[in-house]
């Protein structure tokens, strides 16, 4: 494990029931960078984040986070390690029974015994960094989708983690909030010295801020490199994915017998 990588996956195999999701993949996330993980829907990109967070365990291989092997940790060690990472869920996952302020304060209150003044100033700073200081008293149900995700982002950075994982942060966002989120992710990463992993299939948006990208398909990593390098790639699969073509190595049709043959069987 090189000290420059905060996360390293070595020969990780994971299957859900009979279905193999990952077949011996290697992946490393350099410290301080914004890394994009892309791929078609339903390929288990979220699963990758859950593996890194230790919520599920791989069948084989090792997952190394900040010098420790996540999948071999005991429960208390795992909870200790999780204080150094956080995740922004697709839905935001704000606690619906608390207002925005209490949501951001939640992880701080759970882990530290701070006096109310310090706590309040900390929470307001976090809210200020995502531009929601004025919305502290609102309930999650009163927020728009983009605001909810920004509030969740403020909660994700509440404990000053080293790693933030974004699970599909751009789905269902209007262009303005998309722009805001992109700017925030880049800004927070550079200002707080974080490492970010973004799982997404919004190619152009993610590529615009990523330092490095992985493309997953067919249980494997089919391409990796800087965005420039990937766009210039010769591989037809990478080309199909980045350009969004409907047919190619990833077929338009779900595997089936030829249409003529099936029709013939019906009418016979």
């Amino acid at each position: 494990m090189s000290a420059d990588n905060i996360v390293e996956l070595k020969k990780v195999t994971f299957s859900r029931g009979e279905r193999v999701i990952y077949d011996a993949i290697d992946l490393h996330i350099p410290r301080g960078k914004v890394v994009a993980v892309m791929g078609p829907s339903g390929i288990g990109k979220t699963t990758l984040l859950r593996l890194i967070a230790g919520q599920i365990k791989p069948d084989q291989g090792s997952i190394n986070f900040d010098g420790q092997i996540i999948n071999k940790m005991s429960r208390p060690e795992l909870y200790e390690a999780r204080k150094k990472m956080s995740m922004l869920f697709q839905s935001g996952a704000l606690f619906t029974e608390m207002n925005v302020f209490d949501n951001i304060a939640f992880p701080i209150r759970e882990h530290f015994d701070l006096c109310p003044d310090v706590l309040q100033s900390m929470v307001l700073m976090k809210l200020n960094s995502v531009g929601l200081r004025g919305a502290a008293e609102l309930m999650p149900s009163e927020l728009s989708g983009g605001m909810a995700r920004r509030a969740a982002l403020a909660r994700a950075i509440a404990l000053d983690p080293q790693l933030i994982m974004y699970d599909e942060p751009f789905t269902g966002q209007d262009p303005i909030s998309m722009g805001v989120l992109l700017k925030l992710i880049r800004q927070l990463n550079d200002a707080l010295g974080l490492t970010s992993i973004i799982v997404s299939h919004d190619v152009s948006e993610v590529m615009s801020i990523a330092d490095y990208a992985y493309i997953l398909a067919n249980k494997k990593i089919i391409g990796q490199g800087t965005p420039d390098k990937l766009f210039k790639s010769e591989s037809p699969l990478i080309h199909q994915f980045l350009a969004g073509e409907d047919d190619g190595p990833v077929p338009f049709h779900y595997p089936a017998q030829p249409l003529e043959q099936q029709l013939k069987e019906i009418f016979d």
């Binding site: 919520q55 999780r82 990472m85 697709q90 996952a93």
Partner: peptide, 18 residues
């Protein structure tokens, strides 16, 4: 169940809160 479906339980786990 709703907390689970909206990933509130998962996000709690990731904040190192059981």
């Amino acid at each position: 169940g709703l907390m689970k479906a909206t990933e509130q339980l998962s996000s709690m786990e990731l904040m190192a809160v059981d």
